[in-house]
Design a binder for these strands. Structure first.
Lengths: 138, 138
DNA sequence: CCTTGTTTTGACAATGGTTGTCAATCTTTA
DNA sequence: TAAAGATTGACAACCATTGTCAAAACAAGG
């Protein structure tokens, strides 16, 4: 997942967007729109579900959060530490996430694409497993 | 996407499953359950939508087809030529697909996971771009 | 080629994540 | 402070996918 430095669309500062930002800031792991909405709700910082979706969508478009599609098809979002292109090692069970960079992989995908004449290339790469903690609990 | 050689669950030969198989056999590119259902319908080989879903699900579970989750979250299926683990270079526009193997990537993901103590590791890697033909049409 | 036990089917309802709608409300800028 | 425009939220709508369950199809044995 890449954090593209697209020109950030100008937006208004609203209570709702601040609330979503705040939760993202505090959340170490990937979180779905629904879950984020639930968190806001339990904190009393109520924000409409549609607004949560829209806000996350915009953040993703601006490259300010990374998006991950879980195996169930649900989208999960995360504010990542590094700005450069990177990937994630995600715990299947608790969602604990490690950011990993793989320059070799980047090069490989580019060369593969070129080899077959594909242009305007992008790729998705995610690694799923059980983190040490969850593995121990089994 | 991997084609695991799980023990293939015994199943009955039915007209419906044969029909789905036939379409998969003829279809070079990834195809969604809905689209496959539409194809069957236009051919007069009508099969219930739920059945199409179930059949594809089973084929995927048995590792007889590869599954790809498009950016819109829709699942697409494809009967691949090679049995070993591999990935796909997919045209964003026409879905033209090239199967690619990347031993180095496999090694890299394993080592990254190990390095962080993650076990029971799997990964998803897909490359998207514009195939030569579609790129030329722009 | 019947019969019986089991699997499979399919029409339809239900689910669940996500997006569209649009009037009311808030931000920004003048 | 007012006008212009962006944003919100409650709710409906969407759409892929799964659950339901009686009817139909299959496999195997007699």
């Amino acid at each position: 997942m890449s954090l593209q430095q697209q020109p950030v669309k100008e937006q208004r500062r609203t209570r709702q967007r601040a609330a979503v930002d705040e939760v993202l800031e505090e959340t170490e792991d990937f979180i779905s729109a629904q879950d984020l909405h639930a968190v806001l709700r339990t904190r009393g910082m109520s924000v409409g579900l549609a607004t949560v979706y829209r806000t996350l969508q915009t953040l993703a478009d601006n490259g300010q959060v990374d998006v991950l599609h879980t195996s169930s098809g649900e989208a999960a979002y995360r504010r990542c530490a590094r700005d450069e292109h990177h990937h994630h090692l995600v715990c299947r069970s608790c969602k604990a996430t490690v950011e990993v960079a793989g320059p070799a992989v980047e090069r490989w995908t580019k060369s593969v694409a070129k080899e077959h004449g594909y242009v305007d290339v992008a790729h998705t790469l995610e690694i799923f497993g059980l983190c040490p903690r969850c593995a121990a609990q089994q």
